[in-house]
Design a protein around this nucleic acid. Sequence first.
DNA 1: CTTTTCACTTTACATAAGACAAGAAAAACA
DNA 2: TGTTTTTCTTGTCTTATGTAAAGTGAAAAG
Lengths: 195, 195
Amino acid sequence: MAFKQRHFLNEIFKEQNFKSEELELVLQQFQRVEFAKNDFLVREGQVGNFYYFLEQGFARSYSIDLRGVDITTNFFSTKDIVIDWQSYFLKSHCRENIQAITPCIAWKITFGDFMKLFKIEAFREVGRTNLIKSYFELKSHSLSAITSTATERYLALIADKTDIVQNVPLKQIATYLGIADTSLSRIRNAIAGNK
Amino acid sequence: MAFKQRHFLNEIFKEQNFKSEELELVLQQFQRVEFAKNDFLVREGQVGNFYYFLEQGFARSYSIDLRGVDITTNFFSTKDIVIDWQSYFLKSHCRENIQAITPCIAWKITFGDFMKLFKIEAFREVGRTNLIKSYFELKSHSLSAITSTATERYLALIADKTDIVQNVPLKQIATYLGIADTSLSRIRNAIAGNK
DNA sequence: CTTTTCACTTTACATAAGACAAGAAAAACA
DNA sequence: TGTTTTTCTTGTCTTATGTAAAGTGAAAAG
């Protein structure tokens, strides 16, 4: 196992109180993968068999809505977990795609290996904690769509995910915020004007 | 343990492949609770120590937004799990309230007892499955707020949660859908007119 | 080096939905 | 029962955002 892996994955798991042999066992199950720009980490219709930790690069999940429009549902960057939760854990078909926006490096683990690691209590706890954190982020996003104006949501996104706003086309940001691309362009203009 | 409990909770856990002594152990950890209309199941600011299965009645979660407005974030009815996931599992402070809309009967389990049951693999699986299902529902709600019109969302809500629409004031439904109460009133009117 | 494509901006116009206010209806209360 | 409070509706006016289309500049493709 390469030093690089130890470095990144150790960072990921460092807060957890693993015994050192447990940590070793956990780390051994992960494999390094690279994705080129536009490669798919998760494909709609398939069953997702990998849980990824993203080490480098940016990705986004999107679904195609009833009108055929591509809607960005989430952005991923360093240290994020990239996964379709339902598909991975409930073996259902993915409802959306997850695509690399830039070249990516990630560490993946199969569902089977993930389940094996569940014998380690500390691992179950990281797993649960990560899922709940994802739930919380989704809840925040959902609530802001209802309670905040488009401008407020955009400003919050800049504050929260600066790197992403700078690396992703405006159109994808707009659908993530739930507004038209022209509206986002106007909003940007207005913000620039206020400075 | 009363027959009623066996009946309802058995129903809840019947799909799970518990050994019968495991199921017995699980059921023993639950306690029946009743709530009067307007009682709180979860209070903002506190740490939620109970995981509830709702047997009878309706409840809703809501948070107070930056402008001081009460926003309904979810509705609960029979067989639903009523919980603040983060607070229960991460011991954080609740960000929202969950309140009984009608008198309710629920079955609760403390965090400590819940953790004890994690030694049972089948129980861990129900737990995980339930959390992921909640995640999925939230995701659907979030996506529809972005991709569907107010009318479409209202029609979907009627189809999905008929009983709730009939038992809850219009204003609470409106904030759940992310629109003003007057707009919802007009939407209702338009739907009635089209029939 | 030229052409095509893409990302973004800008304008004009259309529209869904919000704010506010008044009143009707229904429910809760005494 | 009558009274009060809450809930819902309706009208008018305003505004944010959507749609469509045209134009600009830069990057990618040939």
